[in-house]
Amino acid sequence: MHINVFDHYHFQDSLIHRLDARVKAAVTVAFILSNAILPDGNWLAFAVAWLVLLLGNDLSRLGLGYTFKRSYIVLPFVLVAISVIFSPLGKPLAQWHLGFITLIPTNFGVARFFSILVRSWLSVQMAILLVATTQFPDLIHAFEHLRLPRILTTIIAFLYRYLFVLTDEALRLLRAREARSASLQGRKRGGRLTWRAKVTGSMVGQLFLRSYERSDRIYYAMLGRGYTGHLRTLNPHAMTRLDWLALILSLAVLSFIQLLGWVR
């Protein structure tokens, strides 16, 4: 496995890629919020939101199906919402007898279930589009501009940088465990539960100590380059006219979607 599995940025030269990270982050959040406040069952409004998403895919030159292909990650969670189909509100649509349980799907429940599904599915695609078109460090810079506390953005920057180093270390530990866990035929593999937990726990402990000691060395490296407890960064981002235009247009489209959803 290679580090690139973690890197969801997809290099392209496109309008969306060039937009300021702040604009993209703000529009993403606004899009998700817009979906969340649309009333249940407003399929027209949801469809327009989906068109916006398709347009985003197209403008970023990733291909129309780019975010769709990666949106399956919400599927497991959909299980949680299935029970809503059988909401007692609304008109019964059918009656299913499963043994001694009677399930009654209602029109309200079905609309609610599919609305949750669509909201979640649209939202996750927008988030995928955001990271596919924005380098993560740019996103961190954007959050600094948006006045997120410096200490948090710094922890996130360190997390991003060492994510790759430490997951590599974790994978090496896992491989070492694999290499030493042979199983004899007909014997149950893996030992007792407490033993397995102990092995995994020791790996976690080891990873902890290595990270701890590495943080000391990084601290030295920072000291060596003049760090005195206050972090400074450059602010190389500036909003262009195009960025403002994109922001205003997007917010206008989202307002239109809200209008579609609420005015009937």
Binding site: I155, F158, R161, L163, L173, G190, R196, T200, D216
Partner: peptide, 29 residues
């Protein structure tokens, strides 16, 4: 944390976050 912890704490917290992230990969049946 700004009040009580030293400057050393910043890289430490960053690395601990990466550690928690990586440790979540070490699952067991």
């Amino acid at each position: 944390t700004n009040k009580t912890l030293g400057e050393r704490q910043i890289p430490l917290m960053g690395l601990m976050a990466a550690f928690i992230f990586a440790a979540q990969m070490l699952n067991f049946p």
